[in-house]
Design a protein around this nucleic acid. Sequence first.
DNA 1: CTGTTAGCGCATTCAT
DNA 2: ATGAATGCGCTAACAG
Lengths: 340, 340
Amino acid sequence: MTTMSDVARRAGVARSTVSYTLSGIRPISDEVRDRVHAAMRDLDYSPNALARGLASRRSGIIAMLYPLLERGISLSGRDHIWAAAEEARSAGYNMVLWTTAVDDIDGLGELVQQGLVEGVILMEVRHNDPRVAFLSDAGIPFSEIGRSCIEGVAPFVDTDFDQTAFDALAYLDELGHETVVFVNHPRSTIDSGYGLAVNFQAAMETAAQTLGIELLSIACDTQFRAGYDAFSELAAARPGISAIVSTNERALVGVMEAVRRLGLDVPRDLSVVAMLSSAETAESAIPALTTVSPAPYEMGRTAMASLLECLDSGVRAGAQTLVASQLTVRESTGPVPSRN
Amino acid sequence: MTTMSDVARRAGVARSTVSYTLSGIRPISDEVRDRVHAAMRDLDYSPNALARGLASRRSGIIAMLYPLLERGISLSGRDHIWAAAEEARSAGYNMVLWTTAVDDIDGLGELVQQGLVEGVILMEVRHNDPRVAFLSDAGIPFSEIGRSCIEGVAPFVDTDFDQTAFDALAYLDELGHETVVFVNHPRSTIDSGYGLAVNFQAAMETAAQTLGIELLSIACDTQFRAGYDAFSELAAARPGISAIVSTNERALVGVMEAVRRLGLDVPRDLSVVAMLSSAETAESAIPALTTVSPAPYEMGRTAMASLLECLDSGVRAGAQTLVASQLTVRESTGPVPSRN
DNA sequence: CTGTTAGCGCATTCAT
DNA sequence: ATGAATGCGCTAACAG
């Protein structure tokens, strides 16, 4: 391992000069800078992160806390991660992923007390999220993707659920649909305070009321069969349903299978709007799904940017950003069928 | 931030005594130990990881390199991560997830030169994986989940593809099936050297030959529609196909839809064996899928254990473990239909 | 513009 | 069984 002293010796300068060449926080003559760079290259020098962190009290590491829930890391989760990691890197930080559970506060405590991470990004934020209270108390800079009930202690970025729900329902309203079925995540997920399940439910209800649409909400396990069963049941109880909105992708596949088994056709008899971010998934379905899609990449980027700003400024609270979803009309929606 | 000196002062002992009570590598009297522990508790002390790492030259951090590929992090990926992280933690290490791309060797270099990580676990190992050569040259301890063509430089753990393929085909053979369609990942994935795609293809061919089964392999994009189209085409060209094996879950859903559209029934007319690890997925399909399932948890645990052993012993090479898959018969397989 | 020096918080080698 | 002293590799005053 080659150290800064080695570089200094070879370049014929003081250690601090090498340090300052690296950080650039004080002027260095071109000649010296070149000599130092040459020495670093010759010796294949690369600074020791631990030593740098210890001396500067800044580790350069941001942790993204991504609890591995039962649904695994979804496609949109991948985009969040990527975007945040890229944003971090372009600012000279490294991002690591920590998979401690939401309620493993001891684990979080250990992690954070060790002084390894400068800041934290929270994924899968729940309405009543113990991590938010803990980090806030501990004074660790953090930002949230999603939103907890404790506001003002940190920046967050979340999907604009109101806009999303309104756009989806307004579109169906234009097509003449008067009753819409909303397929949500299961009761247990809603109760645990999962943002998408809770906030989108509320947003759908508000939007339906505004538009004068009748909303039938069903909570459904994230499984093919659960969707299949739920829709079969509902269709028997309420024949003539003409539109579905769903955030529950796996259940939706089952719903659509049930629709087929009933001899119905999408979009002729039934319109489907899915809330999901992967265009690939939407387009590989038959028929291709009309979607309202959140913008995970934008969200990840923004969450990291807000956090880095907190680190720079020393201010804890920060930007509260809502990111709009986009409606993309594909083949799964059409005008309400005429009643004969 | 409270330091070791604070603890020492409060306990009325030397700094080194606190250090030794923490590490336990030299005898401490009960009385002093208690005093030190009390002081630590009172001051809510927790050791600084950067300082400890700098002084001991051991960061206690293992990095799992998990490039985010287009298929995202799958359900089995989640198990690998969980298992490895747990194993690490129980040995006093922390595991972080790094999402640098497979061919981002510069990024890996930076990461590793910084002295932040003591060891590395490679996921998504490709047959010709640049990371293997790099880490091997750099002398960084690592282990692989999957297998590259460079052997003997590090421990690895991989699915026993030969056993897996043989079990699947032998079961179909018993049921009387003489021709089996194998739905693999797309050509591009195979060409990139993705282990599952490459090795399982070879294993299937060998097993088919051994058993005297005719194998029809098709490479298929990981999309519903790709599977749908591929099977529709194949069924037209080769009517009377009675069995399918697939590693490509998303394509398989399309395949089964195509089967239905052709008026065929699973398992009456067609048997389906899926290679996937999630029992949940298998059971939520209609009909529930017969599977050969690899053991991702076991693999993740073993990979981490092997790595930690390398760290302890200082030896680079290590255990080469093949983990068996398990055949679980559900509702998607049955005897070959009689030809009239 | 550059050099000198004092820590950052801890592990570890000598002493005793 | 305990204490004192040195240094891990680097940053950031402080001097010039």
